[in-house]
Design a protein around this nucleic acid. Sequence first.
DNA 1: GCATGCGTTCCGCAGTGTGAAATGGTACGT
DNA 2: ACGTACCATTTCACACTGCGGAACGCATGC
Lengths: 268, 268
Amino acid sequence: MSGPKVIKSLERGLRVLQALQMQPDSSLQELYLLTGISKPSILRILHTCARSGIVTRRLGDGRYRIGAMLSHAPSRREHHDRIAEAAAPILERLCERVSWPSDLMVPAGDHMQIRETTRARSPFLLQQERIGLPVNWLWSAVGTAYLAYCPTKERQRVLDLLRKSSRPEDRLAREPGRLNVILDEVRERGYGIRNSMHSGGYYGGPPHSDGLFSIAVPLRDGPRVLGAINMLWLKKAFSIEAFAAHHLAELQNAAAEIVSSVQRRTKR
Amino acid sequence: MSGPKVIKSLERGLRVLQALQMQPDSSLQELYLLTGISKPSILRILHTCARSGIVTRRLGDGRYRIGAMLSHAPSRREHHDRIAEAAAPILERLCERVSWPSDLMVPAGDHMQIRETTRARSPFLLQQERIGLPVNWLWSAVGTAYLAYCPTKERQRVLDLLRKSSRPEDRLAREPGRLNVILDEVRERGYGIRNSMHSGGYYGGPPHSDGLFSIAVPLRDGPRVLGAINMLWLKKAFSIEAFAAHHLAELQNAAAEIVSSVQRRTKR
DNA sequence: GCATGCGTTCCGCAGTGTGAAATGGTACGT
DNA sequence: ACGTACCATTTCACACTGCGGAACGCATGC
């Protein structure tokens, strides 16, 4: 039954692809255990597939996933992965030019979530954030950037959720006046910043004690907003205004590129 | 940019897969022109992919297509291709055991359509029918087998369509009495046969002048009917009753296998 | 501090993939 | 009926590619 000649190296490559199919988001080690192929070989296979665009690699944690080849049902999680996949190469280029790292965040109920990051790639070792880490809606640069530009209806839904929250950091959702001032400022500036001036319980500690500043812009796809990307740097290096003057245009440009890349991918 | 080591043979394999993705249903020659890879190599690649279940080959005309790896949107055409893909190995085994060939047919508006066939594989060279060839609803074994078992509503829709037809071979749709007798006979026997006793204009010529008999059973998936498969043989070799006594059970068995294979494939 | 785990690189050997050319088979034109 | 053209498949000798054990680098955890 296996009569005609087969290409063994291709066969093992397909075996890795099938493993990745069964368990998306795998590390090299997991694929090694799953397939029994030696790690150097899997590495070569993944490099090859990546160069062909069949698999992509997440910048943040180096995990592999199958690329845009199969579209599948557009479940919520999958959709976010598509955005992250499209964003990865663009964030990578951005990081190479500006040196400071970026994150891609998407909405996830009562918080936002990191789906991609170039922090590991930045020459400046800022703290390593994990993929999937929750980020507050109201105090973060990405959260306010998203809320400032998303449709009113969606913003209301998020705020309704936060009003039911008992977390102290979500109190602000019950003060529409102050919140609207903040969002108006975001729209005027064109980018979101961390709201560190408001003291009091951000995740228990003092707000944003990591010594970083951040600016964030939304990923606007027509009226919709897919998520937000930010850039981070050390407070002591630049003021927010100085940094924005240098890099805001590039950040906005990257956002536009990501959106059009997502559009291209979902059209087919 | 292409720094790390790459497996060239895998790369060309993926190139063929991408070509197949862009143009499903390709012949070896087409893939050769599309990729520029030598034909022996493409053949080896396709054998390899086929053995891994990534691509499947149509028995009828030897064309290749991408396998169940990607589910896509279940458009009408794609769904039929899935059925054909599932049916191929089962029809192949059937042909090996019985020697006489089979076809898989699916509904296509005012006619049925061949989506797979083992005629080329049969030791008896019956005439070669092409994939996509239209087959009459009312006079063919597969058509009557389908109509006899499909839901009433669907049968009505087909007959309404045929009543609007001006083709002489569709006249029978306007005689519900005679038609119901025929369909009742099918249900009683458990299989459909060609209605060659009615003379007059089947596709212009005398009905079924090819010297063949045929029996057909539906592919029943619960209340739905996915299509029908038949078996063909030379009139002079056996009577219908004698042939059915020998092979009907196997044909019905193959139908059941195809349906459950389709179910397995569409569940994930 | 050491230990562990994972990703990556190195390198020499084994054996695998490659394409030109030959073969087999089918459809078409005359 | 014969000849031609086209396509799928097989054969074969040679080149070089893919392979995995071992070593390395770099984290994280104890």
